[in-house]
Design a binder for these strands. Structure first.
Lengths: 353, 353
DNA sequence: TCGAGCTTTTGAATCGATTCAAATAATGGA
DNA sequence: TCCATTATTTGAATCGATTCAAAAGCTCGA
């Protein structure tokens, strides 16, 4: 194989028909006379022709029928990270329904990312802007394909994006704990800056924190204020969204005289790590400590006890993103979808004193 | 945008250079005089040219720099299923290192699958043959691209495939339990045929079971025989590799007079479901019941207690598959890689009677 | 037998680049 | 100044299909 690669033109010649007819045999078989069709197909088989090459078709059609999902992360991120996976699953569902393919494009380093974005064969991009979002958007812009940014951290109205109402979500989470009667609450925040691990003073939130955790924080504070609790009364422990920093944060939170009876975690990931720490310390959830997560990843539904959380509308996000790209109908302004409080087994009223 | 789409030829004309030079400016900038390069780049910027279109380049180059991973499953499978994810993560690692992209191609129904396989823009395929493997191979063959089959159920030496030594793996798992002293052992098998749920007689294994579970079973039996235990003494409960059927199987296993002290599960999935059942029944692992899984998915390392298992060499499988495809050096014969017994916390000696 | 109205087929243009042999320009040495 | 080199550019061919206006074949009624 290899050297004598058969193409449509060869088949056409061998079958004694024009290339146009040969093409029709494959792409619009109804238009060509049965007898001819048979003959061409036979010749094709004899020659070992494998059907029209996608690359040629593609060049003509200009459409790939696939969307790219990109992030400034290694490829493994898409199959590893619970949030990314939740989204990918939802996107997969939508794409399956419309027969669209998915290409995952990613890269740790900038240079590779630029190349990957530029050479991905897709009709448009969904950008997971968790980290390095601005750069990702900039690179994608150059490609001049429709794209839509998710989890965008910056406030640039010229970027088509779909977001979630983190403030309202945070408020819903905090309100849930407050309504159960909790007053000693602690916050586990997330971020990827080393500066914000350990105890974080409220004043540092606005200037230093990224948009997502900042908004969630403001949501928490908003609900706390409704119940007359000043933000200073609620300790914030910063995590790097991973296990070690979460365990350290929990250690710090529970080594005080007045440990919290409830925890607001800014992600399900962190909440689940925290639950493991509590389990190892023999603290029972929700009897001793209530905890509520954020995001609504499937793992949260499978934990023991099942985690109460504020769920992102993954299916809706995916549906809108994919259709926006396929129909090139990008949203004019940022859309912020609502989250949904999902009460499961990790939250309950505090023990009576 | 849109109507006046700018192409390389436009830029060339506007800059007053030949198309060849314009092309060089982008793809081999070192070969063109700096002055000219600048000029062309400026014109390109003014015209809003976004760089060479991949489709054109691609057609010429004939190479996409991406591999497709295909399965007869919905797209969500790749982000959902632990085994698939383990593999995808490993594949992602290899691809990241070589700057190769990944396209996931899938479909529930045959017709769509054929289309997807045919129109995926990739240089080759890795086939996850978990179900409907033969059909998948057949479709991919027509595409005339290099491909390699994983988890292939059939014995066709003409199909390039990488497999694992399920017999040896099964034997290692069983031997581990036997060496710990267990003699009352039960097997949780897997499959996707309804006929093989519930108690399965040993005689039915060879004629009815798919290759993977069959081989694992023979591995179990082999080790059991070494310890003088006849296969009839070891109950086999068939599952569909999902939660409900596993719970039913466990129910059946433990509602007898003589419940097992150890369980051989043919997948980590099933083992984890079984552990949940045990936990809910108040049976302690490994004190009351030992259990060993199969596959070595990451979930097995994160469970409580951590699951002992026989791990597939995912990284090695991925490395071989990807390089085989990229270098078009497909293995001549089936390779069967070794599994590794990973002893964690879910297995221990049985309670003394 | 003629021609209107269909159905098929043809052939050339097109999609958007890359490539390479040949032409031209610049450089340097004698 | 002239010629041999070397550095740049050019222009046309190529990759592998699809598309569509126009040509050719058919059928059928008058």
């Amino acid at each position: 194989m290899g050297k004598g690669h058969v193409r449509l033109a060869d088949v056409a010649k061998a079958a004694g028909v024009s290339q146009g007819t040969a093409s029709n045999v494959f792409s619009r078989p109804d238009v060509v006379r049965e007898e001819v069709r048979e003959r061409v197909l036979n010749v094709a088989r004899e020659l070992g022709y494998g059907g029209p090459d996608v690359k040629g078709r593609l060049l003509r059609a200009g459409r790939v029928n696939a969307i790219g999902v990109a992030a400034v992360e290694p490829l493994t991120y898409f199959f590893d990270d619970p949030w990314a996976r939740s989204l990918m699953t939802a996107i997969g569902e939508v794409c399956d329904a419309s027969g669209t393919g998915i290409a995952v494009v990613s890269a740790m380093n900038e240079e590779r990312l630029a190349w990957n974005i530029n050479s991905a064969l897709v009709d448009g991009f969904i950008l997971l802007c968790v980290e390095g979002g601005e750069r990702l958007v900039e690179l994608t812009r150059q490609r001049q394909l429709p794209f839509i940014a998710l989890a965008l951290g910056i406030e640039d109205e010229t970027i088509p994006a779909i977001g979630i109402d983190n403030v309202a979500g945070g408020a819903a989470a905090a309100r849930h704990l407050l309504e159960l009667g909790h007053r000693d609450i602690a916050i586990l925040s997330i971020g990827d800056v080393d500066g914000l691990v350990g105890l974080v003073a409220p004043e540092r939130v606005d200037p230093e924190m990224e948009a997502t955790p900042r908004d969630r924080m403001h949501g928490y504070w908003q609900a706390l204020a409704e119940f007359g609790i000043p933000r200073e009364a609620v300790p914030i422990q910063g995590t790097l969204h991973d296990r070690p920093s979460t365990l350290t944060a929990m250690e710090a939170l529970f080594s005080t005289d007045n440990p919290p009876t409830a925890i607001l975690a800014m992600s399900d990931n962190v909440a689940l790590f925290a639950m493991q720490w509590l389990a190892e310390r023999g603290l029972k959830v929700p009897e001793d400590v209530s905890i509520i997560g954020f995001d609504g990843v499937p793992e949260a539904a499978a934990s023991l006890p099942r985690l109460t959380t504020v769920a992102q509308p993954f299916a809706e996000i995916a549906r809108r993103s994919v259709t926006a790209i396929l129909e090139n109908a990008l949203p004019k302004n940022h859309e912020a979808l609502d989250l949904e409080l999902v009460v499961r087994d990790s939250t309950a009223a505090p023990r009576p004193q």
